[in-house]
């Protein structure tokens, strides 16, 4: 005990104590905190709707109105369905951080449980598209070739032939699809968020939507030819050829022509 008492005055003691305290707090939190990762797409209960309404009134009602009726320049959410809410909130697009031509994807503000509650509340306001099932969004069951034909006709003009995204007018853009989850791809087709048109089940049936997901996912393993430079076409490829490629050729020509010292 005496040895401990003398070390108490060491100049490292406060740091050591602080680290110990942090470790204990973190360990206890990890052990006791409720796990949020296990939230499942269970059937919405009345309490979900109730909690969702509270979340909505605290976070969304400023723009969308106390009863989600919308206002000038802000869409009504009655009848948009759970799929639209899940897409917008789980990708962080809503709540919007600032006014602009487009609401960008960002770190989501709500966890899965809160998102599900918000979706349950909005779904209770009017009938709309529901969140797709795991079966519907399983790209491994889709037909990649048919997905390509559909993607080429319906999606490629904005999202690029392999889903690398592209520009629209007035600062708007079609986002890249490299990291978009299958569920979000499906929901975007179903609900037509922001500038995107709606691809309801009559335009693209549920199976066709799954084919599109297969195609998008198949593009993520890259190009067999080598580096695709972002797959955005002549800008990155031209930069590479003109600056790096021709720069190397010029360097070689100068070296060959220069006198040896």
């Amino acid at each position: 005990m005496k040895a401990l008492a003398t070390r108490r005055r060491s100049r490292f003691a406060p740091t050591a104590l602080l680290l110990l305290a942090l470790l204990i707090t973190g360990g206890l939190y990890a052990a006791l905190a409720p796990s949020t990762a296990t939230a499942t797409a269970s059937v919405a209960t009345a309490s979900d709707v109730e909690l969702g309404m509270k979340l909505f009134q605290a976070n969304c009602a400023t723009c969308h109105g106390m009863n989600a009726q919308g206002s000038e320049g802000v869409p009504s959410l009655i009848g948009v369905g759970a799929a639209a809410v899940d897409f917008q909130v789980s990708t962080g697009r809503m709540p919007m951080q600032a006014n602009g031509p487009q609401a960008p994807a960002k770190t989501p503000q709500f966890n899965e449980e809160q998102t599900a509650q918000l979706a349950a509340y909005v779904a209770s306001l009017g009938a709309g598209p529901a969140i797709p099932t795991d079966e519907e969004i399983d790209g491994s069951q889709g037909d990649v070739a048919n997905g390509m034909a559909l993607f080429r006709t319906n999606c490629a003009m904005c999202h690029n032939a392999v889903g690398a995204g592209g520009a629209l007018s007035g600062g708007k853009y079609a986002p890249a699809l490299w990291d978009t989850s299958a569920r979000n791809i499906y929901q975007a087709m179903l609900t037509g968020p922001q500038s995107m048109p709606v691809f309801n089940d009559n335009v693209l049936t549920a199976e066709e939507k799954r084919d599109v997901i297969s195609y998008v996912e198949a593009q993520r393993s890259g190009s067999p030819g080598g580096a695709d430079l972002g797959a955005i076409g002549p800008v990155s490829e031209g930069l590479w050829v003109w600056v790096v490629g021709m720069g190397l050729l010029l360097g070689c020509a100068v070296w060959i022509g220069a006198k040896s010292s």
């Binding site: 037509g192 709606v198 691809f199 009559n202």
Partner: peptide, 21 residues
């Protein structure tokens, strides 16, 4: 009809904001 599947289109198939090629 829808490109490329060739399914005929009913007026009721279109929701507001939807696009058919």
């Amino acid at each position: 009809t829808i490109d490329p599947s060739g399914r005929p289109i009913k007026a009721s198939d279109l929701t507001i904001g939807s696009v058919f090629h």
